[in-house]
Design a protein around this nucleic acid. Sequence first.
DNA 1: GGCATATAGTTGTTTATGCAACCATAAAGA
DNA 2: TCTTTATGGTTGCATAAACAACTATATGCC
Lengths: 147, 147
Amino acid sequence: MPNNQFKKSELYSFITGKASTAIARRLQKNFKQSGLDITIEQWSVLYHLWKEDGISQQQLCESTFRDKPSITRLVDNLEKLKMVKRVPSKDDRRINMIYLTPEALKLQEQSMQLANQTLNEALVGVTNGQVEIAKEVLQQVYENLKK
Amino acid sequence: MPNNQFKKSELYSFITGKASTAIARRLQKNFKQSGLDITIEQWSVLYHLWKEDGISQQQLCESTFRDKPSITRLVDNLEKLKMVKRVPSKDDRRINMIYLTPEALKLQEQSMQLANQTLNEALVGVTNGQVEIAKEVLQQVYENLKK
DNA sequence: GGCATATAGTTGTTTATGCAACCATAAAGA
DNA sequence: TCTTTATGGTTGCATAAACAACTATATGCC
C-alpha cells in the first residue's frame, strides 16, 4: 500500500524543499555578513576536503551529491579563488587530486561555526527528539532515491 | 540554550538538502519518462495557478518562495511554452495577472499524479507518524528562517 | 598486443538562482 | 498639487545545475 499521508495542500513544501532553500539562503547571508566570500556550493566542496584533503573529483561528486560537470566547474571557481589546487595523480593519469590551499584551511573554523549557528537558528522551537526523527526520514528519502 | 544536536558528520545533509535534491531529481525524471516536458520549477508555478488562476507575479513570489526576478523569468519561459498568459490588471497598471492556458490545464492531473507517485517512492519504509513529525520540523524551519 | 569497454574529467547548451540596479505606477504626506 | 516613498515588475551579471556529447586514460578479454 502506498504512503498516502500527503494531502495536496502539504505536498508542495515537501517536494520543493522550501526548508532547505531557507537554510541555504540563511547560511549564505550569514557567510556574507561575516565577510566570508564564498558560495554555499563552494563551501560544500571545501567541507569534504576539510574532512579529507587530496581526494579526486569523482569522490567529490559522490560526497557532495553533485554530477561531474558541476564539480568540474566548482573546482574551476575554487581554483580561481585560490582555495584549491588540482594535482594530477601519478598512479592514474585520468585523475585529479584536489588539495586545499592554506587560504582555504583558514576558513574552516569560522565557516563551520557559522553553519552550526545557522542550524541553531533553523531549529528554534524544535525538540531534539523531533530532529532525530526528521533526520531519519530525510536520510531514508535520500537512500530511497539516490540510485 | 542552542540546539546542539548536530554532530559534524550529520550536519552536511541537513544543510545542503540532499533529500530535497533527490526528490527534485526524481520528479524531473518521472516527468520526463511520462513525456511531460516542463521543469519542476515551472511546475511549481503551475501548481499554484491550478489552485488559484489569475494571480499576480508578486503572489507567485510568495507562494513559490522565489524572488521577483525568478518569477519574471519563469513566467517568461512558461509564456514561451504557451502555458500561461500575462494580463495587465485594469485596477493597478503595475500588476500582471497570470492566467493558465487550456494547454496548462491539461497537465494538471497527470503531473499531480506523478508528484504523488514521486513522494511515495521517496517515503518507502517511512511510517506515517515519522512523516508527520518530519513535516512539522520542516515547517518550523521554514517559519524560523523565511524572514 | 589489440580491440572493446569502463572510468575520470571537460565542454556546450539551456534553465534557474541571487543580488543589485532600474523603470513605471500607486499611495502617502506636506 | 507636488514630492517622497512604497510596490510590482524587468534587466544585467555571476554562479550553479541538468543533460548530452566529447577526450583521454585505464582495464578486461581474446
